[in-house]
Design a binder for these strands. Structure first.
Length: 462
RNA sequence: UCCCCGAUAGCUCAGUAGGUAGAGCAGGUGGCUGUUAACCACCGAGUCGCAGGUUCGAGUCCUGCUCGGGGAGCCA
């Protein structure tokens, strides 16, 4: 092929290749033919926009007859600047070659499809405008996250995907096994875990946090960014069974300091999107959620709201709202409560800190009052909880006591206690749901549409 | 797991009071002096999600199931 010689559509439409002869490799998006002139719009994934190929006269290109939306092509032609048209540059074709014909039953058409239909053809939906934009945006935002932390001296840690910790405090786990389940079921024999691959129960990770904590006590500042697995049967527009989470962990950092970092980080992701992903943000603003860009811009320019759980409960009580679920100190905040705070009361992202210890995880640092812990959630309009984190309990005795109270096996988690025994330090960390951040930035309302190949209960196709 | 809503051509949908299905797009054929989701004409295309039931007759009414969507819980 001409892989190294070809020119990307992106370079052509930006005018970098004016008056030059180029080779384009891509897929036809639409064809318009008349007697004296014909047009094909070609897309190669480098941009939302297509390059227009001009065939004059079409009779010189017999292959045109066999080209429909979806056909892959190799085209040689000259880039020409044009005036008074939708596109500033187009390509006057000299050679046209069909690389792969496209069957007539190609499901993607030159019109809008519903997201529900596209989810059923997740192998083809990357070729649509919307998913092209989302997938490029996803890549850019991943890069942005790495760049942000690398520039600040954080180290990227690969935490294990397979774990034997079954009570990290975050939901149900997928079990990993090589035992011949069918055979064992037929024989109705007891499971002998010693015969399993790891000689004990193993699971897919629900968080890299515990290992992240270990690493931060050696490297100072670390972050993880990888897949996370939850086996809850959640049928909602903001849950997946497999999703990507970004988790930094900082030694010698308390909750208030971490909150400064979180705000700066989230604002950086927004600014980066606005400044470095113009094409994507313009698309979202026009087709997905009109006014999204304006909202994001205002977020960058203002401070996030910051309240304690106790203050949140007061606000909810004073709101005189008729909530479906009760509001009261000690009760968990429900979706409707979180939405009220971020969408109606503050109308912007809100930090909620210092939750009752009884409704939070065992590893969170207990406050002086002995009733609350140094936890923080970030609630954003439309998406809900986008960040959850805490200052960790660095005091050996406190942590051990918590673990005992929760009925945890101390011996099994001695390694987690050990870092509190050998030169313990205050440390803090949080988790950012990557897909939820993508939803927030794009305005997409279903998490299954910001994940290339989403997994959820009863669905792991493609 | 619970509560709502939905399922009609490849796609998006319409279908009136139960009376045996229709439009746009896509595809095919032809036309058109640069088109922009091009346009014009013609053509083919459906076990109305599945299984029962009510009825002389069911896309339309009833029951169950399957799948999809929205919300709740769980959380990121």
């Amino acid at each position: 092929m001409d892989y190294f010689r070809r020119t990307r559509v992106k370079e052509i439409i930006s005018g970098q290749k004016a008056d030059q002869k180029v080779i384009i490799l891509g897929w036809a998006r639409t064809k318009r033919l008349s007697k004296n002139v014909g047009f094909i719009e070609i897309n190669d994934g480098s941009s939302l926009h297509n390059a227009q190929l001009v065939f004059s006269p079409p009779g010189d290109f017999p292959e045109l007859e066999r080209i429909i939306t979806g056909t892959s092509l190799r085209v040689v032609g000259k880039v020409v600047k044009v005036e008074g048209r939708e596109q500033a540059y187009e390509v006057h074709a000299e050679e046209l070659e069909i690389v792969g014909e496209c069957s007539q039953d190609y499901p993607l058409q030159k019109k809008r499809h519903t997201f529900e239909f596209l989810r059923e053809i997740a192998h083809l939906r990357p070729r649509t405008n919307t998913f092209g934009v989302i997938n490029r945006f996803r890549s850019k935002l991943s890069h942005c996250i790495h760049e942000y932390y690398q520039q600040r001296g954080f180290y990227y840690i690969h935490t294990p995907i397979i774990t034997t910790s079954d009570c990290e405090g975050a939901g149900d786990l997928f079990q990993v096994t090589t035992l011949p389940l069918k055979e064992l079921a037929e024989k109705k024999t007891e499971l002998d875990m010693d015969k399993d691959f790891f000689a004990e129960k193993a699971y897919l990770t629900v968080s890299g946090q515990l290992e992240g904590e270990l690493m931060c006590t050696a490297l100072g500042d670390i972050y993880t960014f990888g897949p996370t697995f939850r086996a809850e049967k959640s049928y909602t527009s903001r849950h997946l069974s497999e999703f990507w989470m970004m988790e930094p962990e900082m030694a010698f950092c308390d909750l208030d300091e971490m909150i400064i970092l979180i705000e700066d980080f989230l604002k950086h992701l927004i600014s980066y999107s606005i400044e470095q992903c113009e094409e994507e943000m313009a698309f979202f603003n026009q087709w997905i959620d009109k006014g999204r860009q304006k909202v994001l811009q205002s977020i960058v320019e203002s401070d996030f709201a910051k309240i304690t759980y106790t203050e949140a409960v007061d606000i909810l009580k004073k709101s005189k709202r008729n909530f479906e679920f009760p509001v009261g100190w000690g009760l968990d905040l429900q979706s409707e409560h979180e939405r009220f705070l971020s969408e109606e009361y503050f109308k912007k992202p809100v930090f909620v800190t210092d939750y009752p210890r009884d409704i939070k995880a065992f590893y969170m640092r207990v406050n002086e009052d002995e009733k609350t812990v140094r936890a923080v959630d970030v609630l954003v309009p439309l998406v809900g909880e986008i960040v959850g984190g805490s200052q960790r309990e660095e005091r050996y005795d406190y942590l051990r006591k918590n673990m005992v109270q929760q009925g945890m096996d101390i011996e099994e988690y001695q390694w987690f206690l050990d870092i509190r025994k050998y030169g313990t330090v205050p440390h803090s960390g949080f988790g950012l749901g990557f897909e939820r951040m993508l939803m927030y930035l794009s305005g997409m309302t279903n998490i299954r549409d910001v994940m290339p190949f989403p997994r959820f209960p009863r669905s792991a196709k493609f």
